[in-house]
Each structure stands twice: as structure tokens, then as C-alpha cells.
Amino acid sequence: MQRTSGGGWFRPLLRKGERFDPEAARRPLLVFEGVHKAYRADAPVLRGLDLTIERGEFVFFTGPSGAGKSTLLRLLYAAEQVDAGRILFMGRDVARLRPESVPFLRRNIGIVFQDFKLIGSWSVWQNVALPLEVLGVAPKVLRTRVGEVLERVGLAGRGDEPAGTLSGGEKQRVAVARAIVCEPALVLADEPTGNLDPQLAVDILGLVEDIHESGVTVLFATHDRSLLDLRPRRVVVLDEGRATDSPLGLVAPGREQRVA
């Protein structure tokens, strides 16, 4: 099983009555098999995508606007349905989940969006605590966990501030905190630096990398080539519905740059 950011072993959140399959822990975290998706019949976004992502990997998804980066992530958390093919998350086909099972899939995935998707009128604390409230976590545990996560993203002591009044970088830190507060198996970052200036973008990437260091699998969608050049990470380039996998990244060895 995979180590979580909190140091414990990951165990997926299942619906009542469903049993954890220990065999799933030995399978790849994500498998895309012949995934096809088209909004218009003459312009498919994904054409037979085949990809395997192991536990604990950090993978960049890049490509021009409209290449299907966000679509790929939306398929993963079942906001979209595949037209053909399978997406296996811990051995279960996401595309075949019943609607009532989708929330339980999402509880295992932390998502960070370009537009943050925070509730502006709520405090930082309330925004971060929301996933734990949905899970029905005891208030004492919730307080401890939210405090730890806020400290981890550099927002200790800022919990009472309304989320709407924060700067872009701070909002994204809150969004990251909310994404990891439940210790998910997988973090999806959908253009999380798209609304930030270059230095803040590097800061957020560094934060996500820190989270990855604790064992979380991260899929990071970006069209910002400069971020890909910072470290030699696996990069999947999406273009015209096809994916090109570069396991060692797009940077020539010896030219890695450190994340500030």
C-alpha cells in the first residue's frame, strides 16, 4: 500500500458494504486503456489513449490549449464520461461507476483548479475543513488536521481570513491545502499556475512537489513549458488527440533547474 502524506498507509474510501481489495494496492494506480473522447465527432480530443501511472509518480500533462489536458483530468474524477476505452483507478473502471459511487471516487482524489474554486465568503479554515466535514470527521481530529495542513502550505495563523480577500498565490495554497487535507491517493492539478505570475507559479509547483515527496501521486496539467524545464519529471504531451510519453522529461540531462 502507498504511504500517505500523514505517514499512514493509504486505504481507499469505499462505499458502505464494499470491501477493500488488498490486491488493488499492487496494481498501477491509474491505467488508461484506449480512452477515446470527442465533443465533436470530427475533432476527437483523445484518440485511443494508453497510459499507465504507478503509485507515487509525478507526471506533467502538457500540450496546447484544447489538447485535452483538462478533459483527461475531468474523465478521471468522472465529471466527463469516456466515449470508449477504460480508465482504471486502483483497478476499478471509473467510466463504469454508478452515479452514486462517484462521490466515493472523488474522496480519494484531491483536485486543484486554475480558478481555485474556493468559497470566497467563507474563511480559509472553513474552505480547508470542508472535505473533512463531508467525511464526517470528528471536530477534534478536524481541527488538528486542518491546522497541520495550513501550516504545511504556509498559511498557519491565517485560518480566520475570508478566502475571497487572499492574493492569487495564497488562494492556490488554500486550494492545495483543501486537496490534501483528506490525504488522497491522487492529486490532480489542473493548470494550477495558470492565474499566477511566474514566481508564484514556481512556488506552487514547489508546494505540490513537497506533497508528492510524501508519497502522493500527482498529475500536473500545465501548458507552461518553463515549469517542465525545472526538473526532469515524466511528461505526457497531448496534441491532436494523441499522447507522447517522455518518462525522463523534456529537459536534457544535466540541465535541471531547482524549484525555488
Binding site: L13, E100, F104, L105, R107, I119, G120, P131, V134, R178
Partner: peptide
Amino acid sequence: SDEVEVLKLIGATDDY
């Protein structure tokens, strides 16, 4: 709608 969208994205059931 923001609140509802966020709730659904973090795994809240329709009943919740």
C-alpha cells in the same frame, strides 16, 4: 452554485 460545485468535487453525495 460555487459551494455546491465545490461540495460535489470533493465527494459530497447528493443527499449531503
